[in-house]
Design a protein around this nucleic acid. Sequence first.
DNA 1: CAGAATCCAGTTCGATACTG
DNA 2: CAGTATCGAACTGGATTCTG
Lengths: 139, 139
Amino acid sequence: MVTASVDQPAAVRLSIPEPGDPYAAACPSRRVLDLIGDKWTVLVVGILAEGTARFSELRRRIDGISQKMLTQTLRMLERDGLVHRTVHAEVPVRVEYSLTEAGRTLVVPLKALQEWAVQHFGDVLTAQAEHDARSAQDE
Amino acid sequence: MVTASVDQPAAVRLSIPEPGDPYAAACPSRRVLDLIGDKWTVLVVGILAEGTARFSELRRRIDGISQKMLTQTLRMLERDGLVHRTVHAEVPVRVEYSLTEAGRTLVVPLKALQEWAVQHFGDVLTAQAEHDARSAQDE
DNA sequence: CAGAATCCAGTTCGATACTG
DNA sequence: CAGTATCGAACTGGATTCTG
């Protein structure tokens, strides 16, 4: 539902069909970009891809994330139906997070992206260095 | 260069090996996340995947992008060696952008992600609606 | 046309303090 | 332990104005 009426010419553009055109500002599919746009999301899903994890474990393993951001990220993922939250009524409380079925489907494309990153960030770094060197020289 | 050693132990967190661990705050591979983290980047690369485009064309086709952001995004992509910029000395000036070899390799994983988005953003939207309904009820 | 520069409102985010 | 709440500092990004 929602979306609709994006009857663009078949002309590919990353081969996206008609359903949700992210090039239209209004389209809700833009939200998906916000989703992966959050770097923490990617990292959290990455860890949960291994299996269930507790809040503190996530916090510990994701270097640099603040508790606020972790909470926020998890809440968002939960809202999006990608992560499941289980509270164990013990003392002290134990909360476990895991990917939902939908969440697991996200792992695949994220994996592809991460593989790209691993294979190419060296080149990117090199390009940056060269570019910066050139820029500095021009001054 | 760099990279190499992608012979990781099958399982492991989205399967990332040792080379660049994005879970370490210092690792430059985090920059790659910033890269895709920028939603404009994804959209720009998406269009350039079709072929060369002028500045104004990009601006026109990406609904909602400001000139500032488009410029900024293109400069970043250029710096990263993913986009090539060609200035045609005419009057008025004509500037064309296209993906570099490296840039084209990025299209593949981005495509995967976009496919996921198209297939699942409906579910995500539904999950959100249900979640929000529940939350509102609890009050 | 393609962009650089400036101003500034709005958002993000970390640090801190407190709770069930 | 796993959060919530709050408050500034920092950054983001749009609108506007000006240039080669």
